[in-house]
Computed example of a mutant assay.
Amino acid sequence: MNFYYAPIFSMGPACNICTCAIHHDQTVTNRNQLAALIEQANITRAQTAQYIAEETKRPCSWRTVQAWLADPELDSSRTCPDWAITNLSAHLKRLKIID
């Protein structure tokens, strides 16, 4: 089984120094990747939706982004699709907001 790792926000009070998933053996979800991109680019959920909509030429609202970022235990949570990560990343790179 292959696991893919990427930075996440924070491990909470148990880990005040390390914020990477590698040291905590956590797999990365699209939700984590989206949150990391938003944090890295320092953009709002509304900007995230706007960038995804511009890239895909399809509507995307901040509520959709909020649902993708919501705790999976919540009824309002929705799985973040691969295309959202791909298109947001491409748009941020084109704008030179991220490398």
Rank of each mutant, 00 (worst) to 15 (best):
M1T: 13
M1A: 13
F3Y: 10
Y4Q: 12
Y5W: 13
Y5M: 07
Y5H: 13
I8T: 10
F9E: 13
F9T: 10
F9Q: 13
S10N: 12
M11R: 06
G12Q: 07
P13R: 12
P13T: 10
A14Y: 03
A14H: 05
C15P: 01
I17H: 11
T19I: 05
C20S: 14
C20A: 05
A21H: 02
A21R: 06
A21I: 00
I22M: 12
H24D: 05
D25L: 14
T27K: 12
T27H: 09
N30E: 09
N30L: 06
N30W: 07
R31K: 15
N32T: 08
L34I: 04
L34K: 04
A35N: 08
A35D: 12
A36K: 03
A36G: 01
E39G: 10
Q40E: 15
A41N: 04
N42I: 00
T44Y: 04
T44F: 04
R45L: 04
A46S: 14
T48F: 02
A49G: 06
Q50T: 13
Y51I: 00
A53W: 02
P59M: 06
C60M: 15
C60K: 09
S61M: 04
W62K: 12
T64N: 06
Q66T: 15
Q66E: 14
L69R: 05
D71P: 05
P72K: 09
E73M: 09
R78S: 12
R78G: 02
C80F: 06
C80D: 08
C80K: 02
P81E: 11
P81S: 09
I85T: 03
N87Y: 14
S89Q: 15
A90I: 03
H91C: 11
H91T: 02
K93S: 10
R94D: 08
K96D: 14
K96G: 01
K96A: 11
I98V: 15
